[in-house]
C-alpha cells in the first residue's frame, strides 16, 4: 500500500475532525471531533512506522518501528487523561448553566 493512501485517509479524518470542531455547537461533540483528530494522527503514525520499516533505512535500530507505536500508546494515555478532565469540566458547566452549547458561552469577550 502506498503511504499516500494513508496520508490521504488520515488527513481526511483529521479535516473532518476540524470541520466538526468548527461546525458543531455541542461541547461534547466538539470534544469528540478532537478525539477523531487524535485518532487520525494515531493511524498516520502507525502507517509511518510501517513505512519506515519498509524502507529499512532505520534497521540499525532494533526498535525502530516500535517508537511510533509507543507514541500512539502515549497519545491514548493522554487522551484518556484529557477526557477525564474534559468531561469533568463539561459536567461542571452543565451543572451551572444546564447547557453544553459552546455558543452560549460568551460572558468573556472583547
Amino acid at each position: 500500500m502506498d503511504i499516500k493512501a494513508y496520508i490521504a485517509l488520515s488527513l481526511t479524518l483529521f479535516s473532518i475532525g476540524i470541520i466538526g470542531v468548527l461546525t458543531r455547537r455541542n461541547a461534547i461533540l466538539v470534544f469528540m471531533c478532537v478525539e477523531l483528530m487524535l485518532n487520525a494522527v494515531n493511524l498516520l503514525l502507525v502507517a509511518f512506522s510501517k513505512m519506515h520499516a519498509a524502507s529499512g533505512i532505520a534497521k540499525a535500530s532494533v526498535h525502530y518501528a516500535s517508537d511510533a507505536q509507543i507514541f500512539v500508546f502515549f497519545i491514548m494515555v493522554v487522551a484518556a487523561a484529557e477526557v477525564a478532565v474534559g468531561l469533568a469540566i463539561i459536567v461542571m458547566l452543565y451543572r451551572n448553566t444546564h447547557s453544553v452549547d459552546i455558543n452560549f458561552l460568551n460572558r468573556l469577550k472583547n
Binding site: D2, I7, V46, S49, K50, A65
Partner: peptide, 14 residues
C-alpha cells in the same frame, strides 16, 4: 512525494 510503500501484515514491532 515519491511512492513509498507501507509494510502490510508483516513485522513484529507491534
Amino acid at each position: 512525494n515519491k511512492e513509498q510503500l507501507v509494510l502490510m501484515r508483516v513485522g513484529d514491532a507491534g
